[in-house]
Amino acid sequence: MTMAAAEQLAPQQPMVRFENVSKRYGNLVVLDDLNLEVSRGEKVAIIGPSGSGKTTVLRMLMTLERIDGGVIWVDGEPMTHMMQGGQMVPAAQKHLRRVRSKIGMVFQHFNLFPHMTALQNCIEAPITVLKMSRKEAEARATELLGMVGLADKKGHYPAQLSGGQQQRVAIARALAMRPKVMLFDEVTSALDPELVGEVLHVIRQLGAEHDLTMLMVTHQMGFAKEFADRVCFFYQGKIAEQGAPQELFGAPKNDRTKQFLRAVLESG
């Protein structure tokens, strides 16, 4: 099959597919036989009470957690497994890295490299991993930092930036690796309330300007409602309910969903 033919076929494949994925810690079942498909360019918000396994979904997709059962597919090929002699075997490091390069992640606590400036944070992986020239990497990082509104802060170290600014650097850093899928793991949870807006603004802009597939775990119901194409409500390691935001927020069917939304709305 030629590359062009493969590309033509690709849009029919979901960007991300969890197939009967399960995850346990000892006896505790964190994710139970999860099946989830995310289309190209789709924005999926994942909500649910703590301990429902929602963050684990992202961490497994980023290969930060091993899965105990099932297969995760990315861009039409298995990520956690590979074909060898006509059989699916657990992925070797090399395979994992190749497929993983399509995914970027932004963390709750930013996880910036504290010994590097904003710019250095954004050029490190493009240079060491993508083998980009320093000049090219710097030009691109400057552009991305400009996009998140931090062009004037590129020489600052993380400790010299506010939480909101750090998180925007983290978004620029992830984008510098040109991912096809972006994962946002409670990216505003560690921020002071007045800094949440600037980060959400960047994500909103990203959604409007780029064809990125996005999965976000969030507690910002308002944002999920307005931004997401689909909302998944997780409860005890399963998707208890999913649907368009208007449906799920407007007329939830599942009792757990109703209970959760009521509790969240009451807390403001």
Binding site: M62, L64, R97, R100, F113, H115, A125, T128, M177
Partner: peptide, 28 residues
């Protein structure tokens, strides 16, 4: 540990992560 996780999310190898991210911080 979150520093290691950031290097995985940026698709760095263990050696790259150790050399560029972990050791410089450990050095201090």
């Amino acid at each position: 540990r979150s520093q290691w996780e950031a290097t995985i999310a940026l698709n760095m190898t263990r050696l790259q992560a150790l050399r560029r991210i972990i050791l410089p911080q450990a050095f201090i």
